[in-house]
Write a protein that binds this DNA or RNA. Structure first.
Lengths: 137, 137
DNA sequence: TATAGAGATTATAACTATTCTAAACTAGAA
DNA sequence: TTCTAGTTTAGAATAGTTATAATCTCTATA
């Protein structure tokens, strides 16, 4: 379990000034035992519940962008109207529950490695994402 | 190559009244030898170039939604701010070229079938989409 | 410890994608 | 030809996100 000191030095080490807003957001995002998925709006709601002094929406956007760039978060693509982020930045795939509108991690081992026979000329693979949409039987 | 009559009856057969706007959009979308990918905005621009009488944005949205529901189009999920659609509604996957911001179809045979060992309880798989992000080597 | 200034935060405006609304129009059945 | 349900339309409304410009705050260094 990380504490404020840890987050502070982690932020500093990656060139981000450890402000109280960023530390708070770290606590919310990275103090969980499970990884989780969120939209900016969901994150904003959690923050407003857990803090006395509010953090402005702009800062939340900025912080998420910064963490994304540093590789602490991963963006997930669902066909959607808004962006979703994942605190699990390792290689893994997702189920998307069409009924509950909910994203579920799939352990990497649960999906056989995806094998692609050809890649466009002079390109290299950056990532492979599998999205499996499921619905009630 | 389909002509206006064809589109007219195809529309009627699927319960959509063949209006001149819908027929025009059909011509643009389905008279190509290659499948293609587009955003609403890109489609709107093509329409405005190819037609004298404009089609309102609302109609373009409505029509794309209608074609989507009828299964003539497929929505594609890229991590994005807007929706993309594909005239290729068969099972296939995509490369996303991060440099050109361009989507490329992958023939179904080019990717080994994705095998999932477990599905969430009482759910069935609706679709499996693989998005392979590539960038310059 | 005080302070300057780069980097952050903030409220709010602006922007973009999409949906809604309500009036006007039209395809096609009768 | 007439009627009407289904369509189209312009424009308003909404939601997500980014930009702006003023204010604030870390932290290096004097």
């Amino acid at each position: 379990m990380s504490n404020i000191k840890d987050f502070s030095s982690k932020l500093r080490n990656s060139g981000l000034r450890p402000t109280k807003q960023r530390i708070k957001i770290c606590e919310i995002l990275f103090n969980k035992e499970k990884t989780f998925h969120f939209s900016i709006n969901e994150l904003a709601q959690i923050i407003s519940k857990e803090t006395v002094d509010k953090i402005s929406l702009a800062t939340i956007y900025n912080t998420v962008q910064a963490f994304l760039k540093k590789g602490y978060l991963k963006e997930i693509s669902i066909n959607s109207d808004k962006s979703y982020y994942d605190t699990n930045t390792t290689n893994h795939h997702h189920f998307y529950d069409e009924d509950k509108k909910e994203l579920i991690d799939i352990d990497y081992e649960e999906v056989e490695p995806v094998i692609v026979k050809k890649v466009p000329p002079s390109k290299k693979i950056k990532s492979i994402e599998v999205l499996i949409k499921v619905q009630n039987r």
